[in-house]
Design a protein around this nucleic acid. Structure first.
Lengths: 120, 120
DNA sequence: TCATCATATCATTGATTTATGATATGATGA
DNA sequence: TCATCATATCATAAATCAATGATATGATGA
């Protein structure tokens, strides 16, 4: 059985992973992989709405995955630690071998096209 | 701007991370870190309900993060790849330095005790 | 000071996900 | 075959999350 402090640690770890676990946040992190960017550059790189980007950035910053630096009216974001990029790289490597499985993991995530209803 | 195939890849990666991004699933993965376990051993190790464990195991299996092997009426699960454990270890290392931030990342996740309302 | 730009915040709505309890399946030994 | 055990599946209710549009903040240059 898990004891309380383990549960807290697991929750924190899960929360950390959840930082990477949303396509919008992950594309922000990926955009920041090789260079720091202002918010508007991130908006442009990801194609997301500005308020959406800003919300996700706030989350990523609170979580310590990115850092912000204000310059005039611009705010530049960068990954706060090399291990953030390392985690993404490791996930990519793993994904290379299990992509089909992840793709088919529709248990909790059938997006729009659940069944085309023609083959029921 | 992201092009379509990038978006697919980002979605897959995010989905992979989401496999780790739930406390229940993560504690299952952690229980399997150093040894394979039957479903009932996982139930006991995590304290989760059996149907809940089974649901999460199904998800983890579909995603390729764990493998199952049936023996009699028991089904034994193990991590499918060393990199699954590596990802957890790397996250732990990162968390060691940013734990406070993750803890305070309440933007999307204030659980039960939002404000004790005494200090408003 | 004013208009404008870059970014942040907020409430709301819709979508997705999680836990639960009930039940089904399929293996085992009596 | 029957009762039992281990696991899986399913529907549903509850919780959580993400995107949006509107608006606020705070910096800049005219």
């Amino acid at each position: 059985m898990l004891i309380a402090s383990d549960q807290l640690e697991v929750s924190l770890k899960a929360k950390l992973f959840r930082g990477f676990g949303d396509p919008s946040r992950l594309s922000i992190l990926e955009a920041l992989r090789d260079r720091s960017l202002t918010v508007s550059q991130i908006v442009e790189a990801t194609g997301l709405a500005q308020s959406n980007v800003s919300n996700h950035l706030g989350c990523l910053k609170d979580c310590g995955l990115v850092m912000a630096e204000q310059t005039g009216r611009y705010v530049t974001y960068r990954l706060s630690d090399d291990r953030v990029a390392d985690l993404i790289a490791l996930a990519e490597s793993l994904l290379g071998d299990i992509a089909r499985g992840v793709y088919e993991c529709t248990r909790y995530n059938l997006p729009k096209d659940q069944e085309t209803s023609s083959d029921a």
